[in-house]
Amino acid sequence: MTFRSAPRALATATAALLALTGVTACSNDDSPAGADPQRVDVVAGFYPLQFLAERIGGDAVAVTNLARPGAEPHDLELNPGQVGQISEAELVLFLHGFQPAVDEAVEQQAGDRAFDVATVEPLLDATAGGHDHGHEGEEHAEGEEHAEEEHAEEEHAEEASDGAKDPHVWLDPTRLATIGDKLAERLGTVDPDRAGDYTARAAALRTELEKLDTEFAEGLKTCQRREIVVSHTAFGYLAQKYQLEQIGITGLTPEDEPSPQRLAAVTEEAREHQATTIFFETLVSPKVAETIAREVGAQTAVLDPIEGLSAEGDGDYLSVMRTNLQTLRTALSCS
């Protein structure tokens, strides 16, 4: 079933009125898709895909982000207007497995107009970038406490045992650049007259993302520590790319409550690696991270997985990633 909030003629008239009065629609409102016939209507499931579409599409696209600033995008629920946007869009950008409600709406409404960015490159396993304890060869004959810690680790890894994948691919700038290249190709198929423009903008964005990659590689090359204790395991791509090891308080779903055993295990690991900082996120409560920080005498800091911006005007993907880099350099005592 296709939901439409207004007939096409009314949408066109409304767009014309907005243009005459100089009013610009918000990029994540519930206005109907297809209001501007001169631009390609793109719907993005969450912020990093919006960023890609806007940078590569430029003035030739009108981008709607289904996830509003400040909202956690994992558990996004769509209203009928948003389902209508998906049904009318000329291109729908989503990442299968990240937002179940979007997956369902895409399957029912988008057809061949959908572009699943998870198909561009193989996704990492949910455990990628995780901490390797290096206990091989050690004797634990009387290690009852260690056995409890191992049990907590096994419990924590259960979600990955069934082949769960980490969707946070955008935290590797080079992978995001490759997705951008494929997006340019897809936009060129939808809008052949401007295909060359899309390709050129994707190339320019790739240059910026490769520069960012170099900054991370150089900035994290020499650090006193390489373990990052994070509120949820969103940083596997970043950890793998820059030889870090993430210790997640919870798994891939940030709202999950960690068990007492898991909290004890993470606290012990934080002490073991002399962590000075426990990281939390902008869109999730910091309470658990603060609890562990108090236990080990560490401070807390934001490490942003950039699933969404906390508010309009909070910079963009590139600026938030650079803030993350400075936060990591401080926390890991990098020279």
Results as ranks from 00 to 15, higher is better:
residue 74 H to F: 14
residue 74 H to S: 13
residue 80 P to R: 11
residue 83 V to T: 13
residue 83 V to M: 15
residue 84 G to I: 08
residue 84 G to T: 08
residue 85 Q to A: 11
residue 87 S to M: 00
residue 89 A to P: 05
residue 89 A to M: 13
residue 89 A to K: 03
residue 89 A to F: 11
residue 92 V to H: 08
residue 92 V to L: 09
residue 93 L to P: 02
residue 94 F to M: 05
residue 95 L to C: 12
residue 95 L to K: 14
residue 95 L to E: 12
residue 98 F to W: 06
residue 99 Q to K: 13
residue 101 A to V: 10
residue 102 V to M: 09
residue 103 D to H: 08
residue 105 A to V: 07
residue 105 A to K: 05
residue 106 V to Y: 04
residue 106 V to F: 12
residue 106 V to G: 06
residue 108 Q to V: 11
residue 109 Q to T: 09
residue 110 A to S: 00
residue 110 A to C: 01
residue 113 R to I: 07
residue 115 F to G: 02
residue 115 F to C: 01
residue 116 D to G: 03
residue 116 D to I: 07
residue 116 D to H: 00
residue 117 V to K: 03
residue 117 V to F: 01
residue 120 V to C: 03
residue 120 V to M: 05
residue 120 V to A: 04
residue 120 V to T: 13
residue 121 E to K: 10
residue 123 L to G: 11
residue 124 L to F: 03
residue 124 L to P: 00
residue 126 A to E: 07
residue 126 A to S: 14
residue 131 H to V: 11
residue 135 H to L: 08
residue 136 E to W: 07
residue 137 G to F: 14
residue 137 G to H: 15
residue 140 H to S: 14
residue 141 A to G: 12
residue 142 E to G: 15
residue 143 G to Q: 06
residue 145 E to S: 06
residue 145 E to W: 04
residue 146 H to L: 12
residue 147 A to H: 05
residue 147 A to S: 09
residue 147 A to T: 13
residue 148 E to H: 04
residue 151 H to R: 13
residue 152 A to F: 01
residue 153 E to A: 11
residue 154 E to H: 14
residue 154 E to Y: 05
residue 155 E to T: 12
residue 157 A to T: 11
residue 160 A to P: 12
residue 163 G to S: 07
residue 166 D to Y: 05
residue 167 P to H: 07
residue 168 H to A: 09
residue 168 H to F: 09
residue 171 L to H: 00
residue 171 L to D: 02
residue 172 D to F: 00
residue 173 P to Y: 04
residue 179 I to N: 01
residue 179 I to M: 02
residue 181 D to R: 05
residue 186 R to I: 05
residue 187 L to S: 07
residue 187 L to P: 02
residue 189 T to L: 09
residue 189 T to S: 07
residue 190 V to R: 06
residue 190 V to Y: 00
residue 190 V to D: 00
residue 190 V to L: 00
residue 191 D to F: 02
residue 191 D to H: 02
residue 192 P to R: 04
residue 193 D to Y: 08
residue 194 R to D: 11
residue 199 T to D: 13
residue 199 T to G: 07
residue 201 R to M: 06
residue 202 A to L: 01
residue 202 A to Y: 01
residue 203 A to D: 15
residue 203 A to S: 15
residue 204 A to W: 00
residue 204 A to M: 02
residue 205 L to I: 11
residue 206 R to T: 12
residue 209 L to W: 00
